[in-house]
Structures are given as structure tokens and as C-alpha cells.
């Protein structure tokens, strides 16, 4: 069972490019296919994974591991998610270092950067679209955004304040 969990998450983590949110549906699919977890149970775990800090794919794997196989399951699943990107980054860093003078590589990374800007804009758009905007909420968020626009180094205290404020007011 433990090795099954390990290889399942290892596989998902190795084969899914494009960040945590790309991995979650694949995890769900693999877990259902292996008859380890029902959809409803997975969605419950996912909602907890989203409510705590940390990369969503990592949190989901750890919580699924815990649910199925206790602490050992949590450790094994967490490791399985982290190891592939770790070694991938080490390999890529070496590769980039070798070809750092290459004009084509620089061009490629610049192109990817442009795509990232577009993707982040789209993430922002989705966030804005998926919420109800009461007047109070709009004012709070716009104020926070304006403060950070002027002084971006305040981001940590502002975000903490924002979380406390939004939670206590229930907006």
C-alpha cells in the first residue's frame, strides 16, 4: 500500500508540467482509478489542502497519504511529490549553466516569461470573476492593492492584516 502511494504520487509529480493546479485533477483521476479514494472524499481533502498554506499539490498528497496510511503515508506521499521536481530543477540548472551564453536559450526563457505574465493575468482575472464583490470588500481589497502598489515591501504585514480583517468581518 505504501509503495503504491509512493509510486502513484511520484508518477503524477514527474509527468505533470505546469504547476500544482495542473497536478490536482491528475491525482484525483489516478486515485480513483487505483480505487484508493472516492471522489467525494478527495474533494473534502482538497478543500482542507487549499485552506492551509503551502503548495496545493504537496498539501493534497500529504493529506491523502495521512488519510489512507497515517503518518507514514503522509511522509511517503509528500516525498514522492517533492523528489521529481527537485531533481528536475537540479538537472535544468546544470543545463542552463552550461548553455548560459546561448542566445537561443535566452530567447526561449524570455518567451516563457511573456507567457507567464499572460498566465498570471488570467489567474487574476479568474480570481476577480469568481467572487462576490460587496462594496465593503471592494474597498478593503482596493485599499490593500493601492498600498502595495505604492510600497510593495509591505506585502507580508498587509496580507496578514487583510486575512484577519476579511475573516473577522466575514466579507
Amino acid at each position: 500500500m505504501l509503495h503504491k502511494l509512493f509510486f502513484l504520487f511520484l508518477k503524477v509529480s514527474t509527468l505533470t508540467l505546469g504547476g500544482g493546479y495542473a497536478m490536482v485533477p491528475v491525482m484525483k483521476w489516478e486515485l480513483e482509478r487505483a480505487k484508493l479514494l472516492e471522489e467525494e472524499e478527495f474533494l473534502k481533502i482538497l478543500s482542507v489542502a487549499q485552506a492551509i498554506p503551502g503548495p496545493i499539490a504537496f498539501n493534497t498528497a500529504v493529506l491523502v497519504g495521512k488519510r489512507l496510511k497515517g503518518v507514514a503515508g503522509a511522509v511517503i506521499s509528500g516525498l514522492a511529490v517533492v523528489l521529481p521536481p527537485f531533481f528536475a530543477i537540479v538537472l535544468v540548472a546544470e543545463f542552463i549553466n552550461t548553455f548560459r551564453e546561448s542566445v537561443a536559450l535566452r530567447g526561449f526563457l524570455n518567451g516563457v516569461y511573456a507567457a507567464v505574465v499572460g498566465l498570471v493575468a488570467s489567474v487574476l482575472y479568474q480570481f476577480v470573476k469568481s467572487q462576490k464583490w460587496s462594496l465593503r470588500k471592494t474597498i478593503i481589497l482596493a485599499t490593500a492593492a493601492a498600498v502595495l502598489f505604492i510600497k510593495s515591501s509591505l506585502v507580508v504585514p498587509v496580507v496578514i492584516l487583510l486575512l484577519v480583517l476579511l475573516y473577522s468581518k466575514g466579507v
Binding site: 509529480s13 514527474t14 505546469g18 504547476g19 521529481p84 528536475a88 507567464v116
Partner: peptide
Amino acid sequence: IAQVTPGP
């Protein structure tokens, strides 16, 4: 680089 490599 983080974006084109698998993982979060």
C-alpha cells in the same frame, strides 16, 4: 525555469 520544469 520554474515554470518549464515539472512541479509546483
